[in-house]
């Protein structure tokens, strides 16, 4: 049972959350190329090691946030709200 650190609620059991995968991909603009859209929807870095990913506190505050987690050791390193520049 992983403990996921929700930036708003603190550490909670993994069963309260929904996972959504890679949080490094960014939705392109309408004008961007086909290949950018293809990459956004389909291709993934899929690293063995540190991975930034979306989690959703479904059974809590219902916020999406980014978690930095190691896909090899399952160590949860940090979490942050979904800020964009």
């Amino acid at each position: 049972m992983l403990l996921i650190p929700c930036p708003w609620c603190g550490k909670r059991a993994q069963t309260e959350f929904t996972y959504r995968g890679d949080a490094t991909v960014e939705r392109p603009d309408l004008a961007d190329s086909d290949s950018q859209w293809y990459d956004y929807v389909y291709t993934r870095d899929n690293p063995r090691g540190e991975h930034t990913e979306w989690w959703h506190h479904t059974g809590g505050c219902r916020k999406w946030f980014k978690v930095r987690r190691n896909t090899w050791t399952h160590e949860v390193i940090s979490s942050e709200p979904p800020v964009r520049d």
Partner: peptide, 13 residues
């Protein structure tokens, strides 16, 4: 709801 939340919170904040 989850689908809309991810767009509201992360794609078009």
């Amino acid at each position: 709801l989850e689908h809309m939340e991810i767009y509201a919170q992360t794609v078009w904040p």
